[in-house]
């Protein structure tokens, strides 16, 4: 079966290409040779620190960013090569939920109009009353009172605004939702409500998620598969239990050790992570912070290889 979303050896660099090719590329790539698939109804978690390129990857799925090299395929169609007109039918099939629900909504219009806008854009055939009904149904679906459609965003709490953001994303009947740090700005008790809602919607509507987050405990709970990004590369990818129970890459292990304990009596944290990253070397991007580095790592960038079926790692030591 065709994957719903496929990144095929995607590389993205910003900045002008150098006029002197022999001097090498002008900028280091933000994403480097990323290959990843998301199946229908599947949640793929992307974890990584700020600057790892995880948001760029998410934006690429919506064609908000185009790759410098490589292809992005949606349902088997190369969306990178399409014209704007050809892409239009695909636009409604992928939607995004943002990190900051406050900034993602227009403060000047009612939340009902915000959701309605998305309907107008993608389903112009609907009559005004049909749109109104759809808006009410969508608000209901995300756990809000449809009667509050006339209120503006400031009247809602952070968690409610995020629900509105989800209703807006659902308006176009998407098959894939890119959730970029969608719960990280929310309080822990509110976060639980939103994650439960996202889970229920996946089961009801068969949605797939590209779930971008830095909170490993959340990613573990919601994802089927997880990819760990470091400086624009997937250093490890696998089923969530394989990846969290038997992490192979030193960086994944370091991330897992950094997760704060949830109980003061649980296992003491391992010695601190090495200090701030320094200038990268020609070889492995993690070289400067790695506790298990070897001589080869300085010079040769480790290629990704499959260790057991479905569990890939890019590390000489693993």
């Amino acid at each position: 079966m065709t994957a719903l979303l496929r990144f095929d050896a995607v590389t993205k660099s910003y900045g002008r290409p150098s006029r002197f090719p022999w001097r090498g590329p002008a900028a280091t790539p933000v994403l480097h040779g990323i290959s990843l698939t998301v199946a229908r109804g599947e949640t793929v978690g992307i974890v990584g620190e700020s600057g790892s390129g995880k948001s760029t990857l998410g934006r690429m799925a919506l064609r908000l960013v185009s790759p410098t090299r490589g292809r992005v395929l949606f349902d088997g169609h190369d969306i990178t090569a399409m014209s704007e007109r050809e892409f239009r039918p695909f636009r409604s099939r992928v939607q995004m939920i943002f990190q900051d629900p406050h900034n993602a909504l227009d403060p000047a219009i009612s939340v009902g109009d915000s959701v309605s806008e998305a309907l107008e854009a993608t389903q112009p055939a609907l009559s005004r009353s049909e749109r109104g009904e759809r808006v009410a149904a969508l608000l209901q679906q995300v756990g809000l009172n449809p009667l509050s459609a006339g209120r503006r965003p400031h009247a809602f709490s952070g968690g409610q605004k995020q629900r509105i953001g989800i209703a807006r994303a659902l308006a176009t009947r998407p098959e894939l939702i890119v959730a970029d740090e969608s719960v990280s700005a929310l309080d822990v008790s509110v976060q639980a409500h939103i994650l439960n809602l996202m889970h229920d919607l996946r089961e009801q509507l068969g949605l797939a998620y590209l779930f971008i987050a830095h909170d490993l405990a959340v990613v573990r709970r919601v994802s089927h598969r997880v990819a760990v990004l470091y400086r624009g590369r997937i250093v490890e990818a696998g089923g969530r239990d394989a990846l969290f129970d038997t992490p192979l890459h030193p960086y994944t292990r370091m991330l897992l050790r950094s997760v704060p304990r949830t109980h003061p009596l649980s296992e003491a944290p391992a010695p601190g992570a090495p200090a701030e990253p320094q200038e990268p070397v020609a070889g492995c991007p993690f070289y400067t912070r790695c506790a298990e580095r070897m001589d080869i790592c300085r010079h040769v960038d480790p290629p990704a290889r499959t260790v057991v079926a479905g569990h890939d790692v890019a590390c000489h030591a693993a």
């Binding site: 822990v188 008790s189 976060q191 639980a192 994650l195 439960n196 889970h199 909170d215 490993l216 405990a217 959340v218 573990r220 709970r221 969530r240 239990d241 969290f244 897992l256 997760v259 949830t262």
Partner: peptide
């Protein structure tokens, strides 16, 4: 409500 790495159930409290 706090997600725990060791907990793998689908729903959050």
């Amino acid at each position: 409500s706090m997600p725990d790495l060791a907990d793998t159930s689908d729903r959050f409290h």
